[in-house]
């Protein structure tokens, strides 16, 4: 390529750059004019507003009043929201309480239902044991029945230990004897006692003033840390219902024996 051609090429490039610059300058001038127009318009509006102060003041006052109204409304809504949240919280707590109460009542109902589901003494004792294991959560305990002839409370059923391991208890003596004689449940906060004359709980079983027996708890299951309100309600239920269940089963057994004796006599006389 010759020097001449090179010069022409460079001249063309320069011209192209110059044209782009000219175009850019023209755009800048146009934008400048547009912005100037906008500034003039804003100034005009400002002047108009400044001249109409009464109208602005009125509008401002209206807006302030409206804002105050909205503030009051907001406070009212927030207050109602707080009240609703509180009510909701109370409902949730009440729901939990009712749910717990429902569970407790179900437990008490099942215990009562099962205790009166049979007239067989051994079945009644089995049910008492089931209730004390499954509902109270005891590991070692003994059921005593009062012997009318000797006046002793005799161990008749037990869990966690063989029946002979538990001593007979004279009425009015020791924790169990005193509990049955007085009709008061003895309950401690301890979860175990190795002394089989000192249970942690003694539930007297009585029908009116008649002693029927007792349930003595010596140790709770490992996972049972302490007695709950339901446990104490169960003690009260057992004190009444287990006593009547044992009493009814004993009466039934007696009546069965007497019936058989009478039937034997009748058979003897009529044959």
């Amino acid at each position: 390529m010759s020097d001449r051609d090179d010069i022409f090429k460079r001249a063309d490039e320069f011209l192209a750059v110059f044209r782009r610059g000219a175009e850019f300058t023209r755009e800048l001038v146009e934008e400048n004019q547009r912005l100037r127009g906008q500034i003039v318009e804003v100034d005009r509006r400002d002047n108009d507003a400044a001249q109409d102060t009464t109208e602005w003041g009125k509008l401002r006052q209206q807006l302030l009043t409206h804002i105050e109204g909205l503030e009051v409304e907001k406070e009212d809504v927030l207050e109602r929201l707080r009240a609703l949240e509180e009510e909701n919280r109370q409902f949730a707590n009440r729901y939990v309480e009712i749910e717990e109460e429902n569970n407790n009542l179900a437990n008490l109902y099942v215990a009562s239902y099962q205790l009166h589901s049979t007239l067989d003494l051994s079945e009644v004792l089995k049910i008492i044991i089931e209730i004390v294991i499954n509902l109270v959560g005891a590991e070692i305990f003994c059921v005593y029945v009062h012997d009318d002839k000797t006046g002793l409370l005799e161990p008749v059923a037990a869990e966690g230990e063989k029946v002979p391991a538990f001593p007979s208890v004279p009425m009015g003596t020791g924790i169990v004897g005193v509990s049955v004689a007085s009709g008061d449940t003895h309950a401690t906060d301890s979860n175990g006692s190795a002394d089989y004359e000192s249970p942690i709980v003694s539930i007297p079983l009585r029908v009116e003033d008649r002693p029927i027996g007792a349930i003595a708890i010596f140790k709770l299951l490992a996972q049972k840390e302490q007695f709950t309100l339901l446990d104490h309600e169960l003690f009260t239920l057992l004190a009444g219902h287990a006593a009547t269940a044992i009493f009814a089963a004993e009466l039934h057994a007696q009546s069965e024996r007497k019936l058989n004796t009478i039937q034997g006599f009748i058979d003897l006389l009529t044959k």
């Binding site: 437990n107 109902y109 099942v110 049910i127 089931e130 209730i131």
Partner: peptide
């Protein structure tokens, strides 16, 4: 095997 437990579980 325990009717008491069965009844309780059924209730729940």
């Amino acid at each position: 095997d325990s009717p008491t437990m069965r009844q309780l579980l059924v209730f729940a």
